[in-house]
Design a protein around this nucleic acid. Sequence first.
DNA 1: CTACAGTTTGACGTTTACGTCAACTTTTGT
DNA 2: ACAAAAGTTGACGTAAACGTCAAACTGTAG
Lengths: 127, 127
Amino acid sequence: MTGAYSITELSREFTVTPRTLRFYEDKGLLSPIRQGTTRIYSDRERTRLKLVLRGTRLGFSLQECREIIDMYDPTSRLNTRQLLRLCTKIREHRNALLAKMRDMEATLSAMDEVEQTCLGALIANAA
Amino acid sequence: MTGAYSITELSREFTVTPRTLRFYEDKGLLSPIRQGTTRIYSDRERTRLKLVLRGTRLGFSLQECREIIDMYDPTSRLNTRQLLRLCTKIREHRNALLAKMRDMEATLSAMDEVEQTCLGALIANAA
DNA sequence: CTACAGTTTGACGTTTACGTCAACTTTTGT
DNA sequence: ACAAAAGTTGACGTAAACGTCAAACTGTAG
């Protein structure tokens, strides 16, 4: 495991362009190692990429994605103060997520309602 | 009811700028009536605005928001063909939403995991 | 050795979603 | 009647998130 992917391999797997991967690197979201000047992506980078894409799909900015992912990925040993700060961050981000969840549920149930109306109208039309 | 709001009233209620409301109008998301040249927003527009903001928070583009909201708001009587098309659209948008839901649940449970690790480390540090 | 497929670094372009004036008209309190 | 407050239409600016070349380098199969 702990695969080594080229930039096009990885970009194809997630149907993004190489430019996107370079851009994310520029923004500090990915940091592939270099073999000479060529980028090599490990499974860790692959996972981070997956998380970035998940985050953007949920409407988070790349900045926010970075914050979130860096929480997930405690690259170093943390002292008590840092751990407490991390807990606070987790709480914040979770609250943001739960708010979105509520938005989502509201949207979903509204959609269901429209569908009911729609189906009702179809039945009426059929009569 | 069926209130009449000025542009600043409405913008303040939702903590956006008047510019935003004019922009949404330009994009066909809102269509306040005019009293002379001045915009007057009804409760219908207020609701639409609420839905736009909800949509953007969920990472939908204004285009997508418009599609979704226009479904909710069947302004005219629809024939069977149109109703069937609407049902299809609802299905599509719901699927998109459910996909986001899954992304969200994954993110949430990952966060919970990080928190557990974090709390565990805190306890270890306290010992 | 060389042709070619893949990669790299700029650098400028584009789309979305507004922000920020400016210049002007309209409405309203006193 | 008149100044302040609110509203209108341009027009240009901006930040985020990439797209799209161009020019040069590199590694590899034939």
